[in-house]
Each structure stands twice: as structure tokens, then as C-alpha cells.
């Protein structure tokens, strides 16, 4: 297998870090070399955040540049557009059909761009879903991140890893059942 690269992008506080933790835990159990990179600091205050995960037999760089990601998981749809240049032309995108205004948009100084999802669909294989809606129906909007993770597993066909076991070990015990249901709902949604 060639090395794989995933980009998890969203807005600070959406749970991308926990999602990445689930992903790398499973990859490590499957025996892959794994590297992961995230940026701390200023970006946490309402900013755009991205976490990169790379895996394979032997991984060197913890970061990638343009046109090198196999998959983007966008927790917010404008963020998919922001990081689209990182995606390989034949890469895939899991896109949460969910809008979060930036501070400048909220203040009426700028407009949320139209057609983010459609623009991505015009160029890439896209798996769209409304993770917030699915998570709310499961009883807690906060598990939207694991819904998206379920879709990612399906899109990358990574079913040889026992994700139920991984999720059970990584998430806090009192949210275990919820997150397992979220994972399967996300898997079935795309």
C-alpha cells in the first residue's frame, strides 16, 4: 500500500482532535507507522483548524503540501473549499453540509460564500452528509464528529480495523454507546 494522507478540517471546538485520535489509534493497532500534525495557538480562538494524519509502512513528513491529500474530512463546508488545494485531483472529500459564520460574516461585513458543496462536487468525489442532523437525531449534536468519522471509514474502505473496539477505548465511557451509534450512522449515511 502507498502511504495515505488525510486532512481533518473545521472550526476550533468541533472535535477534530478526538476524531484524529480515534483514527490514529486504529491505524496503530493495524500496525501502520503513523504521523500526525496539528497547529496550536492563535488558531484555536474561533479560527480555521486542520489536523493532518499520515500512515503507511514508513512515514517521514508529518505535513503535506498542495495536491497530496487522499481525503479531506470537512467538519464545515467552507473549510472544505479552503483546503481543497491540498486534495489530490482523484482524492475524495467527506463534507458536513453545515455552515458556521466567521466573525466577519456574523458582523455583516462579508457574506458566506455560496455553492461550497456544489463547487467541491464539480471537481471531486464528494460524500456529503448532514452530520449535525444525524447526531441530533441520535440525541447529542456533539457526536457529529464521529458521524463524519464513520463516513470516512466507508469512503476509504478501512473496514479491516475493528473501529467499534477503538471507539470504545478512546471515547469517555459515558459517551461510548452514543459514539458507537454515531459511527455506524455515519458509515451508513454515505
Amino acid at each position: 500500500m502507498e502511504n495515505k494522507s488525510a486532512l481533518l478540517v473545521g472550526v476550533g471546538g468541533q472535535g477534530a482532535i478526538l476524531t484524529a485520535k480515534v483514527l490514529v489509534t486504529g491505524l496503530m493497532r493495524a500496525g501502520y507507522d503513523v504521523k500526525m500534525s496539528e497547529v496550536h495557538g492563535m488558531s484555536q480562538r474561533g479560527g480555521s483548524v486542520s489536523t493532518q494524519v499520515h500512515w503507511g509502512k514508513k512515514v517521514y513528513s508529518p505535513v503535506i503540501g498542495d495536491g497530496a491529500a487522499d481525503i479531506i474530512v470537512a467538519f464545515e463546508k467552507m473549510e472544505a473549499v479552503r483546503y481543497a488545494n491540498y486534495l489530490k485531483p482523484d482524492g475524495v472529500a467527506i463534507i458536513n453540509d453545515y455552515e458556521m459564520a466567521s466573525s466577519t460574516i456574523a458582523a455583516g461585513m462579508e457574506k458566506y460564500p455560496e455553492g461550497c458543496l456544489e463547487a467541491m462536487q464539480n471537481h471531486f468525489k464528494v460524500y456529503p452528509l448532514n452530520a449535525e442532523k444525524i447526531a441530533s437525531e441520535l440525541g447529542n449534536v456533539k457526536c457529529a464528529n464521529i458521524v463524519l468519522f464513520g463516513s470516512m471509514v466507508k469512503a476509504l474502505n478501512m473496514t479491516d480495523i475493528d473501529w467499534d473496539a477503538v471507539i470504545s477505548d478512546v471515547v469517555p465511557a459515558k459517551f461510548r454507546e452514543l459514539n458507537l451509534r454515531a459511527y455506524h450512522a455515519g458509515f451508513d449515511a454515505v
Binding site: 472550526v11 488558531s43 467552507m78 481543497a84 485531483p89 466567521s102 466573525s103 466577519t104 460564500p113 464539480n122
Partner: peptide
Amino acid sequence: PETVDVGVKPVSRPPAL
């Protein structure tokens, strides 16, 4: 590297208090 311009410009998310 081969990249795709999807033709939509995202709005920046500057950090705020």
C-alpha cells in the same frame, strides 16, 4: 503539484477575543 481550483473563495476566520 497538480491541484484543483474549485472556484469558490472562502472567507477568512480571523481569531477574536
